[in-house]
């Protein structure tokens, strides 16, 4: 079943002065449970594509369907609500809320969703256990290592039970050991809980473990390799 379908997506920045064509007609279909890496050289349009798929940016042309909803037609506030219910984000710089504890960071989106305390507590405990940080739930981000912060970020992304998780260079700031641990965690979640992951990355270790690798060059899909 398709989670994301893009058709003829283009994105041109600064169209009236000096146009920069970041995406030049991207057709893409991501199915549920995929573990996909989007790769390519700098300026190839990886981040732009993720921003558009994630509803953070709008395409100049083309459509982006997520669960049969054309997100290009949603208003800003509708998009925020749509993201809250359907998309999990993992950022390169973790982007946890520094004034909240690990538990509160994970719980935050569920609070926005209006989930009950019992439901939140149960889900937070399960996720913190899943990411191996059950003993760190009351630590603030500044008290955690980079790898631990990124694990909290993954738990936060999973908390609202999104349709898929978008991760922009999630291992860029991590050492080898933390990268390996994070990849193990994400693969485990992908396999056990059928969570769909889409990464943009330069990291060969991530590319090696991805089951589908889409290569973007000059805003177009050059190769789309599905591995066994």
């Amino acid at each position: 079943m398709s989670v994301i379908t893009t058709k003829g997506v283009t994105k041109t920045y600064n169209p009236e002065k000096i146009p920069v064509h970041a995406l030049n007609g991207v057709d893409l279909e991501i199915k549920e449970g995929e573990f996909t890496a989007i790769v390519g050289p700098s300026g190839s349009g990886k981040t732009t594509l993720l921003n558009i798929i994630g509803g953070l940016d709008r395409p100049s042309n083309g459509s982006v369907q997520i669960n049969q909803t054309d997100i290009a037609t949603l208003s800003d506030n509708q998009l925020i609500d749509f993201r809250k219910e359907n998309i999990g984000f993992v950022f390169q710089a973790y982007n946890l809320i520094p004034v909240l504890t690990a538990k509160e960071n994970v719980e935050f989106v569920m609070l926005l969703q209006g989930k009950s305390k019992a439901e939140r507590d149960s889900r937070v405990n399960a996720l913190m256990k899943a990411v191996g940080l059950e003993t760190k739930i009351n630590k603030r981000p500044s008290e955690l290592s980079g790898g631990q912060q990124q694990r909290v970020a993954v738990a936060r992304a999973l908390a609202p039970k999104p349709r898929f998780i978008l991760a922009d260079e999630p291992t860029a700031n991590l050492d080898s050991h933390s990268t390996a641990n994070l990849l193990d965690l994400m693969l485990e979640l992908n396999q056990k809980e059928n969570v769909t992951f889409i990464f943009s990355t330069h990291d060969q270790r991530v590319i090696d473990r991805a089951r589908r690798v889409i290569t973007l060059v000059d805003g177009k899909i050059e190769t789309d390799e599905v591995r066994a």
Binding site: I80, R83, F89, A93, N95, I97
Partner: peptide, 16 residues
Amino acid sequence: VKELGMLMAIGMNKLK
């Protein structure tokens, strides 16, 4: 700015 952008990205609406 970055944190506020992140909050809106993960679903905190403008009113909040």
